[in-house]
Structures are given as C-alpha cells and as structure tokens.
Computed example of a mutant assay.
Amino acid sequence: MQISFVYILKCADNSYYTGVTSNLNQRMYQYDAAFYPDCYTASRRPVELVFYAEFTNIGFAIDKEKQIKKWSRAKKEALINGDYDALPNLAKKKFQK
C-alpha cells in the first residue's frame, strides 16, 4: 500500500498552494530547486510546508486536494492551524476586514 500526501505550501508572496504527491520529501526538493520552472511556485519561492495529511488511497487524496483548493483562505488557515471545529462554518465567501 502506497501512502499519498495532500499538502499546503505557503509561498513567499503569502499565497497558498495545495498539491498531492506520493513522495513528499522529493516533491519539496523539487519546489526548492524550481525543478518545474513554469509552475505556480517557481516564481514564489521560497515555499514553506505548512500542512500535510497522509492517505492510503490516492483517489481519496486527489479528491481532498480538489476540495481544499476550492476553500477560502480563512478555511485553509483554520486547517493549517488545526482549528478543525471552525471548518464547517467557514464558507467560501469574502469576509469583511
């Protein structure tokens, strides 16, 4: 059984990037080296791994990645901070500052 990871990176421009991989260490090396120079993170380095979760089913991991990518920044930050109780109440909408 192969483990898959869903992860969130915080980029130098303060944006978040969500991805999925079967080898998190290798993937982080690729981000640091700008292995794919045209990807979203290459021009936003350095990146910081701020969240990851392990999955035993790659299909489920991909579904979760797609779900998280649709979340608002506030909801992603609640996940990153481990504030799981807040997740159901954070809809994808604009919040007043």
Rank of each mutant, 00 (worst) to 15 (best):
E65A: 06
D13R: 06
S15Q: 15
K76T: 11
R73L: 14
D63T: 06
A12Y: 06
E54I: 10
I80L: 04
K92Y: 11
G59C: 04
L87Y: 08
N81L: 06
F35K: 06
D63L: 02
I62C: 02
F51V: 01
F95N: 13
F51A: 06
E54D: 03
R73V: 06
T21R: 08
A34W: 10
M28W: 10
A91C: 05
A34S: 13
N57V: 04
W71N: 01
K92Q: 11
I62R: 09
S72H: 09
D13F: 09
E65G: 02
L49T: 12
V20W: 03
G59T: 08
C11S: 05
K94P: 01
K69L: 05
L79D: 11
D83K: 13
N23T: 13
A74V: 11
Y17L: 10
K66C: 04
I80R: 07
K92D: 14
R73F: 12
Q30W: 11
V50T: 08
F5M: 03
P46W: 04
E54L: 01
T41G: 07
K76M: 05
R73K: 14
W71I: 05
N57D: 14
V20K: 13
Y52V: 02
L90D: 03
Y84P: 03
R27Q: 15
Y7C: 07
P37C: 07
S22F: 04
S22T: 14
F35A: 15
Y36M: 08
S43N: 07
Q67R: 09
D32Y: 07
R27E: 14
Q67F: 03
Y29S: 11
Y31G: 01
W71P: 09
C39S: 13
V6A: 03
F51M: 00
E77I: 12
G82Q: 09
K97P: 11
L9I: 07
Q2N: 08
N14M: 15
F5R: 00
Y17N: 09
D85A: 14
F95D: 07
I80S: 11
Y84H: 13
N81P: 06
F51P: 00
I68S: 04
A91R: 12
A78N: 03
N14C: 06
Q96F: 13
F95Q: 09
E54Y: 07
P37W: 01
S4I: 01
D32T: 14
D13L: 09
D63R: 12
N25F: 11
